[in-house]
């Protein structure tokens, strides 16, 4: 097989493209998150009026989407390439289209469209207005102008571009099964490429089994309580707030919630209640960040 573009080449192309346009090219956040938006470099830096530009690839875990590696499109963990530009530049749509060209997609032979799709994250207390970008009828990106983050109405507006890397890679290479997409070119490997499945298939099977069947519900509930309590304690601690670790506890709670959800552990009401509890943590972190006059010079994450 001679792929047009491998997954890692796409990531490299996007990083080079956005690096040239002044983005901090960051690394994935080293915790379990459901979406790139939860990375502190997006969540916190969207707050306040200071400009910010960042790009990174974020592995995103969605326990309920796991399919034991048997579905050609759906997986427990996928890779989002995430770009945040704040304030949103006037030519952001053109920049986005140019970034597709950087991955070898010629917009002149495709039908690329921006279709209404407003985004909302109840756990982050966030919402935005925007589109899903479709290419030849297939959704390949989310394009969102954040309006609210952590319960705070934003004045200066960040725009977030989220590329569905696997889908785009499938598209570019005309491949119909996610596990067949080329991760890397490798003359040492059978077929001349290392396929996605070689790296991800076993994990998909096992993670699905864990999230759907094996995860200990009571233990997860307990850990949820601990994470929530710790977050509160860190926000209220003397000499604090210690908002980065506090926010990390909120991320933990969010992931625990997702596993419990995949296990079917909630009634509708309890589900709503837990979402509300996570949102209150996110909102408290956002408020603390702004109260501390953050958003300038200092490093948010690590």
């Amino acid at each position: 097989m001679n792929p047009k573009m491998t997954l890692q080449e796409m990531i490299a192309a996007l990083s080079a493209f956005w690096s040239e346009r002044g983005c901090v090219v960051h690394q994935p956040y080293d915790m379990e998150v459901g979406a790139g938006t939860m990375h502190p470099e997006t969540f916190f830096r969207s707050l306040g009026d200071d400009p910010w530009r960042v790009a990174y690839c974020q592995p995103s875990r969605r326990p309920a989407d796991g399919r034991y590696g048997e579905n050609p499109m759906r997986v427990y963990k996928h890779f989002q390439y995430q770009v945040v530009l704040k304030p949103s530049p006037a030519d952001v749509q053109d920049l986005y289209l140019a970034s597709l060209e950087a991955m070898g997609i010629d917009p002149r032979v495709h039908d690329i469209r921006f279709e209404e799709d407003n985004w909302e994250s109840p756990t982050l207390g966030a919402s935005g207005v925007g589109w899903q970008v479709t290419m030849d009828g297939m959704e390949i990106s989310q394009f969102t102008y954040f309006q609210v983050m952590g319960g705070v109405d934003l004045r200066v507006i960040p725009v977030e571009l989220t590329y569905g890397l696997e889908r785009i890679c499938m598209f570019i290479n005309d491949i119909r099964n996610i596990f067949d997409i080329p991760w890397a070119r490798a003359d040492w490997h059978e077929g001349g490429i290392v396929p996605y499945g070689a790296l991800r298939l076993r994990a998909e099977r096992e993670q699905s089994a864990w999230c759907f069947r094996l995860a200990d519900v009571d233990e997860h509930r307990r850990q949820f309580e601990v994470a929530e309590r710790e977050a509160r304690r860190l926000l209220e601690a003397e000499g604090g707030p210690y908002l980065v670790p506090a926010y990390e506890r909120a991320l933990e709670a969010s992931h625990l919630f997702n596993v419990l959800d995949a296990r079917g552990a909630f009634s509708v009401t309890e589900r709503q209640e837990l979402i509300g509890r996570i949102r209150r943590l996110s909102v408290a972190c956002a408020k603390a960040w702004l109260a501390a006059g953050e958003g300038r010079d200092e490093e948010a994450g690590s």
Binding site: P87, P89, A90, V129, Y145, I157
Partner: peptide, 18 residues
């Protein structure tokens, strides 16, 4: 039904005006 702000947030409309 829904409006938005963009850029420096000075204006509100259904989508950014260019």
């Amino acid at each position: 039904p829904k409006t938005m702000r963009w850029g420096d947030g000075r204006f509100r409309f259904v989508r950014p005006v260019h």
